[in-house]
Design a protein around this nucleic acid. Structure first.
Lengths: 109, 109
DNA sequence: AATAAAGTTCGATAATCATAGAACATTAAA
DNA sequence: TTTAATGTTCTATGATTATCGAACTTTATT
């Protein structure tokens, strides 16, 4: 469907990552993604916002280096760049996800 | 000089914490604070912005529950709420600070 | 070939935010 | 009692951002 640009590990910036994770809709999406542990079409994760808004959020997450998106048919499959993030910023994504689980249920955004 | 309102541990929100840390000026300030390990007057930490802007940033950090501010004479002494944050969101502040140190020098904001 | 499915992009809008200067408040020092 | 030091608050401004609907693109299905 489309070619996506992803930052290399070198290009990933901490403040961009933190900013991307600081939005409730995006954090919730990332949380869902982490629990599903395999590539997911964007549509598989329920979100409280319009399709175009979600497209924007996914772009922010992708450009921050948090998610990987690839296209397959009409779907775009999304996955977490957990390993790369762990290499670049050890413990950050992990602790944030644990913190997110501890405070909020995934369903309510 | 002034009475400050600080959120209780219960009131601290993950997205607010992440948002507060996602600004380079604020992250840098927090980084300095973490290295100094004792209460610091705001003026002791060099910042690239105007006094009123810094006051705004400190307010954001305080309202997010990241720093504690108390007044002594004309100075307001600032400290990290490391222990409380560690209790509420284990590993988050720590990993973010390590990540910050790994990518940027404290001096350049 | 026509239609459906899944997203993206564009344009618009309302909200939030980082910034700075000016005026102010409080405390300490001369 | 001035004056200096340290911050805060107010007001304004420009930038960024979250949101949505409409139009569009690409691929798959009928």
């Amino acid at each position: 469907m489309k070619q996506y640009q992803h930052p290399t590990v070198d290009q990933i910036s901490l403040t961009c990552v933190l900013h991307a994770l600081s939005d409730p809709v995006r954090l919730n999406f990332v949380q869902c993604l982490a629990q599903l542990t395999c590539e997911q079409p964007c549509g598989a994760i329920p979100t409280p916002v319009a399709k175009s808004t979600m497209s924007h959020h996914l772009r922010v997450l992708r450009e921050a280096g948090i998610i990987q998106i690839r296209t397959e048919g009409t779907q775009s499959l999304t996955s977490l760049r957990s390993h790369e993030l762990e290499t670049k910023f050890p413990g950050v994504l992990d602790s944030v996800l644990k913190a997110a689980s501890s405070t909020s249920s995934v369903e309510e955004v």
